[in-house]
């Protein structure tokens, strides 16, 4: 075995395939998969460094067979009915083309969104989170409200240290008692009604029980003497 063999044989067996993998195969899939997956986003990073910016890349090419519930459905989602949302809702300016937009107030159209704890109790205005014009839709890739960076750009203005999981708090919380909430936020709906069930059940039993008990005792005098003479007490 010569020196030439000792150097070149491992080179050919290991190094060349490794170089191939690093430069060619990873470039196609792995490198971007990590940060730009449609589905996973930054989930694996959210409790790590908190610095995302340097990893941010543009979304990958569209993948025809990946469905996004409520946004893109069907086997081949390029038909007019493929998207379940307005096209406007994915724009950088969500209000583009709305007539007399400058003269309107947010709550003219978004009345339901003004009735939450942040607005009513913390006295926040819409723009403190949604920002100035143009207001991009939350799902727009470069929007500060996009879930991939909302915690860093919006939530942490007040809640220092907010993580992506933290920013999954539903600000515009639906009314938990409504049937529509069973669709949009089922855990809240069921938690609410189970708790209401426990409360109503307790009172359905103990309220009549206590009232009847009180009435019954009006007609029942307890004995005041017990085996030995004792003075009457309250």
């Amino acid at each position: 075995m010569t020196l030439k063999h000792i150097i070149f044989k491992p080179l050919i067996c290991f190094a060349l395939p490794m170089v191939t993998c690093v430069f060619i195969v990873s470039g196609i899939g792995w490198g971007q998969e990590e940060t730009a997956s449609f589905i996973r986003r930054y989930k694996q990073y959210e409790v790590s460094s908190g610095y995302y910016e340097q990893y941010e890349v543009k979304p990958r090419h569209e993948r025809p067979f990946v469905e996004i519930p409520g946004v893109r459905t069907g086997r081949f989602p390029y038909s007019p009915s493929g998207a379940a949302v307005r096209f406007n809702a994915r724009r950088a300016d969500a209000h583009q083309g709305i007539r007399f937009y400058e003269n309107r107030r947010c709550e003219d159209c978004h009345m339901a969104q003004t009735l939450d704890l942040h607005t009513i109790r913390a006295n926040l205005t819409c723009r403190q989170c949604h920002g100035g014009e143009p207001i991009a839709n939350n799902d727009h890739y470069f929007s500060p409200m996009n879930p991939i960076r909302r915690h860093a750009y919006v939530c942490s203005k007040c809640h220092q240290g907010a993580s992506a999981a933290y920013s999954a708090y539903v600000i515009h919380e639906p009314n938990p008692s409504l049937m529509a909430t069973q669709e949009s936020f089922p855990v809240l709906f069921y938690a609410f009604w189970i708790m209401i069930g426990i409360a109503v059940g307790t009172f359905a039993v103990f309220l009549p029980h206590t009232i009847l008990w009180g009435i019954r005792e009006l007609f029942f005098k307890k004995e005041t003497t017990v085996e030995a003479p004792h003075e009457k007490q309250t």
Binding site: V47, S163, A165, Y169, V170, F185
Partner: peptide
């Protein structure tokens, strides 16, 4: 302690 809690659960758990 919402920041601590959301290390182990999603934020919508706080709504619930």
């Amino acid at each position: 302690f919402p920041l601590f809690a959301t290390r182990y659960m999603p934020g919508w758990g706080l709504n619930v």
